[in-house]
Amino acid sequence: MSTDIERQWTSRIRHSVVDKLPPDKLLPDTQPAYVASWIYVFGVTTMAALGVIILTGIILALDGPQWWHSSTLGHFVNSMHLWSVEIFFFAMVVHLWGKFSMAAWRGGRSLTWVTGAVTFMASILAGFTGYVSQTNFDSQWIATQAKDGINSTGGGAFFNVLNLGQMLMLHIVLLPIAAVALTGIHVVMVRMKGVVPPFEDATTEVSA
Protein backbone atom coordinates (compact mmCIF):
# COMPACT_ATOMS: atom_id res chain seq x y z
CA MET A 1 0.00 0.00 0.00
CA SER A 2 2.58 2.53 1.05
CA THR A 3 4.92 1.54 -1.82
CA ASP A 4 2.01 2.00 -4.21
CA ILE A 5 1.60 5.52 -2.99
CA GLU A 6 5.31 6.21 -3.23
CA ARG A 7 5.30 5.06 -6.84
CA GLN A 8 2.57 7.47 -7.84
CA TRP A 9 3.57 10.13 -10.36
CA THR A 10 2.05 12.66 -8.02
CA SER A 11 4.04 11.71 -4.95
CA ARG A 12 7.25 11.31 -6.95
CA ILE A 13 6.92 14.77 -8.41
CA ARG A 14 6.05 16.21 -5.00
CA HIS A 15 9.07 14.55 -3.39
CA SER A 16 11.38 15.74 -6.10
CA VAL A 17 10.06 19.32 -5.93
CA VAL A 18 10.27 19.43 -2.14
CA ASP A 19 13.79 17.96 -2.26
CA LYS A 20 15.05 20.50 -4.74
CA LEU A 21 13.16 23.47 -3.38
CA PRO A 22 12.09 23.02 0.22
CA PRO A 23 9.88 25.84 1.57
CA ASP A 24 12.72 27.36 3.59
CA LYS A 25 14.73 27.75 0.39
CA LEU A 26 11.82 29.12 -1.61
CA LEU A 27 11.00 31.66 1.11
CA PRO A 28 14.17 31.91 3.19
CA ASP A 29 14.34 33.79 6.48
CA THR A 30 18.12 34.06 6.55
CA GLN A 31 20.79 34.53 3.95
CA PRO A 32 24.59 34.29 3.87
CA ALA A 33 26.32 37.26 5.47
CA TYR A 34 28.22 38.04 2.25
CA VAL A 35 24.96 39.26 0.71
CA ALA A 36 25.68 42.79 1.92
CA SER A 37 25.62 45.22 -0.97
CA TRP A 38 23.14 47.48 -2.69
CA ILE A 39 23.92 45.66 -5.94
CA TYR A 40 21.59 42.90 -4.74
CA VAL A 41 18.50 45.12 -4.89
CA PHE A 42 18.41 45.45 -8.68
CA GLY A 43 16.98 41.97 -9.30
CA VAL A 44 13.98 42.55 -7.06
CA THR A 45 13.61 46.08 -8.48
CA THR A 46 13.38 44.57 -11.98
CA MET A 47 10.63 42.24 -10.80
CA ALA A 48 8.78 45.04 -9.06
CA ALA A 49 8.91 47.08 -12.27
CA LEU A 50 7.60 44.06 -14.18
CA GLY A 51 4.71 44.01 -11.73
CA VAL A 52 3.90 47.68 -12.38
CA ILE A 53 4.22 47.11 -16.16
CA ILE A 54 1.70 44.27 -15.97
CA LEU A 55 -0.67 46.19 -13.72
CA THR A 56 -0.69 49.28 -15.97
CA GLY A 57 -0.81 47.03 -19.03
CA ILE A 58 -3.95 45.35 -17.70
CA ILE A 59 -5.60 48.74 -17.22
CA LEU A 60 -4.65 49.78 -20.76
CA ALA A 61 -5.96 46.46 -22.09
CA LEU A 62 -9.31 46.91 -20.39
CA ASP A 63 -10.24 49.84 -22.61
CA GLY A 64 -8.58 48.80 -25.85
CA PRO A 65 -5.57 50.01 -27.83
CA GLN A 66 -6.83 53.51 -28.72
CA TRP A 67 -8.28 54.57 -25.37
CA TRP A 68 -5.17 56.35 -24.18
CA HIS A 69 -5.19 58.83 -27.09
CA SER A 70 -8.43 60.43 -25.98
CA SER A 71 -8.63 59.91 -22.21
CA THR A 72 -6.65 61.90 -19.67
CA LEU A 73 -6.66 58.95 -17.32
CA GLY A 74 -5.66 56.68 -20.21
CA HIS A 75 -2.73 58.91 -21.07
CA PHE A 76 -1.58 58.87 -17.46
CA VAL A 77 -1.77 55.07 -17.32
CA ASN A 78 0.20 54.98 -20.58
CA SER A 79 2.80 57.26 -19.00
CA MET A 80 3.10 54.89 -16.05
CA HIS A 81 3.42 51.98 -18.46
CA LEU A 82 6.26 53.78 -20.30
CA TRP A 83 8.15 54.82 -17.18
CA SER A 84 7.84 51.42 -15.53
CA VAL A 85 9.36 49.96 -18.71
CA GLU A 86 12.23 52.45 -18.47
CA ILE A 87 12.78 51.47 -14.81
CA PHE A 88 12.50 47.78 -15.71
CA PHE A 89 15.26 47.90 -18.31
CA PHE A 90 17.34 50.26 -16.18
CA ALA A 91 17.26 47.87 -13.21
CA MET A 92 17.70 44.78 -15.35
CA VAL A 93 20.85 46.13 -17.00
CA VAL A 94 22.40 47.12 -13.67
CA HIS A 95 21.42 43.68 -12.33
CA LEU A 96 23.20 42.14 -15.33
CA TRP A 97 26.36 44.17 -14.71
CA GLY A 98 26.28 43.17 -11.05
CA LYS A 99 25.79 39.47 -11.71
CA PHE A 100 28.53 39.51 -14.34
CA SER A 101 30.90 41.17 -11.86
CA MET A 102 30.18 38.39 -9.37
CA ALA A 103 30.46 35.64 -12.02
CA ALA A 104 27.15 34.49 -10.64
CA TRP A 105 27.06 31.43 -12.91
CA ARG A 106 29.59 29.62 -10.70
CA GLY A 107 28.68 26.56 -8.69
CA GLY A 108 26.12 25.00 -11.01
CA ARG A 109 24.31 28.27 -11.66
CA SER A 110 24.99 28.54 -15.39
CA LEU A 111 21.38 27.90 -16.36
CA THR A 112 20.31 30.67 -14.01
CA TRP A 113 22.52 33.02 -16.04
CA VAL A 114 21.17 31.64 -19.31
CA THR A 115 17.51 32.06 -18.31
CA GLY A 116 18.27 35.61 -17.16
CA ALA A 117 19.89 36.47 -20.48
CA VAL A 118 17.01 34.92 -22.42
CA THR A 119 14.56 36.91 -20.28
CA PHE A 120 16.44 40.06 -21.30
CA MET A 121 15.97 39.15 -24.98
CA ALA A 122 12.29 38.33 -24.51
CA SER A 123 11.86 41.68 -22.74
CA ILE A 124 13.44 43.55 -25.63
CA LEU A 125 10.98 41.86 -27.97
CA ALA A 126 8.10 42.64 -25.60
CA GLY A 127 9.20 46.29 -25.42
CA PHE A 128 9.55 46.50 -29.19
CA THR A 129 6.09 45.05 -29.89
CA GLY A 130 4.75 47.59 -27.40
CA TYR A 131 6.42 50.46 -29.22
CA VAL A 132 4.85 49.38 -32.54
CA SER A 133 1.43 48.92 -30.91
CA GLN A 134 1.08 52.55 -29.79
CA THR A 135 -1.07 53.50 -32.81
CA ASN A 136 0.65 56.85 -33.25
CA PHE A 137 3.48 58.38 -35.30
CA ASP A 138 6.12 56.66 -33.18
CA SER A 139 4.69 53.21 -33.86
CA GLN A 140 4.32 53.95 -37.57
CA TRP A 141 7.92 55.06 -37.86
CA ILE A 142 9.42 52.31 -35.72
CA ALA A 143 7.46 49.66 -37.63
CA THR A 144 8.51 50.91 -41.06
CA GLN A 145 12.15 51.15 -39.94
CA ALA A 146 12.28 47.82 -38.13
CA LYS A 147 10.73 45.89 -41.00
CA ASP A 148 13.99 46.09 -42.97
CA GLY A 149 16.03 44.49 -40.22
CA ILE A 150 13.58 41.69 -39.60
CA ASN A 151 12.93 41.15 -43.31
CA SER A 152 16.67 40.76 -43.92
CA THR A 153 16.68 37.70 -41.67
CA GLY A 154 13.72 36.17 -43.45
CA GLY A 155 11.71 36.54 -40.25
CA GLY A 156 9.62 39.38 -41.65
CA ALA A 157 7.58 36.90 -43.64
CA PHE A 158 6.20 35.50 -40.38
CA PHE A 159 6.70 38.35 -37.93
CA ASN A 160 5.12 41.26 -39.81
CA VAL A 161 5.82 44.40 -37.80
CA LEU A 162 3.37 46.34 -40.00
CA ASN A 163 0.51 44.09 -38.89
CA LEU A 164 -0.90 45.83 -35.82
CA GLY A 165 -3.12 42.90 -34.86
CA GLN A 166 -0.22 40.47 -34.81
CA MET A 167 2.07 42.85 -32.88
CA LEU A 168 -0.61 43.72 -30.34
CA MET A 169 -1.42 40.06 -29.70
CA LEU A 170 2.25 39.27 -29.20
CA HIS A 171 2.62 42.28 -26.93
CA ILE A 172 -0.36 41.73 -24.68
CA VAL A 173 -0.66 37.93 -24.64
CA LEU A 174 2.25 35.82 -25.77
CA LEU A 175 5.27 37.88 -24.73
CA PRO A 176 3.96 38.78 -21.24
CA ILE A 177 3.39 35.06 -20.65
CA ALA A 178 6.93 34.37 -21.83
CA ALA A 179 8.43 37.17 -19.71
CA VAL A 180 6.60 36.13 -16.55
CA ALA A 181 7.32 32.41 -17.07
CA LEU A 182 11.01 33.05 -17.73
CA THR A 183 11.26 35.34 -14.73
CA GLY A 184 9.58 32.68 -12.60
CA ILE A 185 11.99 29.97 -13.74
CA HIS A 186 14.92 32.34 -13.19
CA VAL A 187 13.85 33.16 -9.63
CA VAL A 188 13.12 29.54 -8.74
CA MET A 189 16.61 28.63 -9.96
CA VAL A 190 18.13 31.38 -7.84
CA ARG A 191 16.23 30.09 -4.78
CA MET A 192 17.21 26.47 -5.46
CA LYS A 193 20.92 27.18 -5.66
CA GLY A 194 21.10 30.17 -3.35
CA VAL A 195 23.11 33.33 -3.94
CA VAL A 196 26.56 32.68 -5.43
CA PRO A 197 29.35 32.69 -2.79
CA PRO A 198 32.35 35.03 -3.10
CA PHE A 199 35.53 34.05 -4.92
CA GLU A 200 38.09 32.61 -2.48
CA ASP A 201 41.80 32.72 -3.25
CA ALA A 202 42.72 29.23 -2.13
CA THR A 203 39.93 26.74 -2.50
CA THR A 204 39.95 23.19 -3.62
CA GLU A 205 36.59 22.20 -2.28
CA VAL A 206 33.84 22.16 -4.85
CA SER A 207 30.21 22.71 -4.17
CA ALA A 208 27.96 21.64 -6.97
Binding site: A33, A36, W38, F42, F90, V93, V94
Partner: peptide, 23 residues
Protein backbone atom coordinates in the same frame (compact mmCIF):
# COMPACT_ATOMS: atom_id res chain seq x y z
CA UNK B 1 20.68 61.01 -18.87
CA UNK B 2 19.25 57.49 -18.51
CA UNK B 3 22.63 55.94 -19.36
CA UNK B 4 24.55 58.21 -17.00
CA UNK B 5 22.09 57.36 -14.23
CA UNK B 6 22.57 53.66 -14.90
CA UNK B 7 26.33 53.88 -14.53
CA UNK B 8 25.91 56.12 -11.49
CA UNK B 9 23.50 53.64 -9.91
CA UNK B 10 25.90 50.79 -10.54
CA UNK B 11 28.78 52.68 -8.95
CA UNK B 12 26.64 53.85 -6.05
CA UNK B 13 25.46 50.27 -5.45
CA UNK B 14 29.07 49.13 -5.37
CA UNK B 15 30.42 51.79 -3.04
CA UNK B 16 27.52 52.87 -0.83
CA UNK B 17 27.71 51.32 2.63
CA UNK B 18 25.07 48.65 3.11
CA UNK B 19 23.18 49.09 6.37
CA UNK B 20 22.38 46.48 8.99
CA UNK B 21 25.55 44.37 8.85
CA UNK B 22 27.32 45.22 12.10
CA UNK B 23 28.38 41.73 13.10
Amino acid sequence: IVMVLMVASFLAALFAPFPGRRN
